[in-house]
Computed example of a mutant assay.
Amino acid sequence: MLQQDILKLYRKKYNYTQTALADQLHVSPQAISKWETRDSLPSIDNLLALSDLYNISLDELVQAGPYFKKPFTVGHRVSWKRLVIFVLVWTLFSLFVTGFGYQPWWLFAVIMLWGLVVVLPIIFDSYWTIERTHISATILSDRFFEKFSQLLKHDMKEKVNYSDITLITIRYIAKVETSPWDFWRDELVLDLVTNANTTIRLPVSVPASTFLPQLIMFLQRQHIDVEDPQGIVDKLLLGENLHDKFHEK
């Protein structure tokens, strides 16, 4: 998404034609057209006037949202502190379930083992960090035992320089709900393709509207091609609910 795309999107969001917007700003319709084709750029005064007209900040108008400082982490880091807290909490839970020693010791051991092997991997997920010169990603396996092994090694980080990225594609993967008890969530991911022709899938586990439009503009400034075939960024800027949009019947 480029500057001219944002200007055009907001104009349509607030139901202005080019002529109507020109009247509001006291410029010619041709000036609006040139802004939206990047033949020219609006002056500071015109940007301020657009900001007042749409009741949005200059950051939102210029770079699709509030500036986010880097490093910016998407998801929750895996840390020894979180691991230790989980083990302590699960130990207390196991003791409570087994009556604090009233039940056989082997039952306590089974519950503890089940928590460490099955529950522990569920509460940890992949995360990645946007740095000034690169993206560092910690990608965890979907398989319980493999993820558990990764957590024990605590060595899963992969660094990708922006200069090594050739393409990023934004995808929304809608899950088909087969029953009322189907709790699997939809996925929003960025498929990152490198010069080595490898693909790294980065999950978006925080509200995408808080950073994704700004990230896309930042990546484009790094001369990285970004594909958004489903119009995800436009939907976010228009304030649409992605789940509702992709589950419409």
Rank of each mutant, 00 (worst) to 15 (best):
M1N: 00
M1K: 06
I6T: 14
I6N: 13
Y10M: 08
Y10H: 07
K12D: 09
K12W: 12
N15W: 10
N15D: 15
Q18C: 09
Q18L: 02
L21Y: 01
A22N: 07
L25E: 02
H26P: 08
V27H: 01
V27Q: 04
P29K: 03
P29C: 05
I32T: 02
S33E: 01
S33K: 12
T37Q: 06
P42G: 04
A49M: 08
D52M: 14
L53T: 13
I56G: 12
I56C: 14
L61P: 01
A64H: 07
K70W: 11
K70S: 06
P71G: 06
P71H: 02
P71D: 05
V74I: 13
R77Q: 14
V78W: 00
V78N: 11
W80F: 12
R82S: 12
L83I: 13
V87Q: 14
V87Y: 13
L95I: 04
L95S: 08
V97M: 15
Y102V: 02
P104V: 01
G115T: 01
L116C: 12
V118W: 07
V118Y: 15
V119R: 11
P121N: 02
I122R: 12
T129L: 02
E131I: 06
H134D: 03
T138Q: 15
S141A: 13
S141Q: 14
F144C: 13
F145R: 08
E146K: 05
K147A: 00
F148H: 07
Q150F: 00
Q150T: 00
M156I: 09
K157M: 03
E158N: 12
N161S: 10
T166D: 15
I168C: 04
K175A: 03
K175F: 01
K175M: 06
E177A: 03
T178D: 04
F183A: 10
R185A: 09
E187V: 04
L190G: 11
L192E: 01
V193Y: 03
N195T: 11
A196I: 06
T198W: 05
R201I: 06
V204Q: 09
V204H: 08
P207G: 15
A208C: 03
S209T: 01
S209C: 11
Q214A: 05
L219E: 10
R221S: 15
H223K: 02
V226K: 02
E227G: 08
Q230F: 10
Q230Y: 09
D234P: 10
L236N: 06
E240T: 00
H243M: 11
K245Y: 06
F246N: 01
H247S: 12
H247C: 01
E248P: 03
K249G: 07
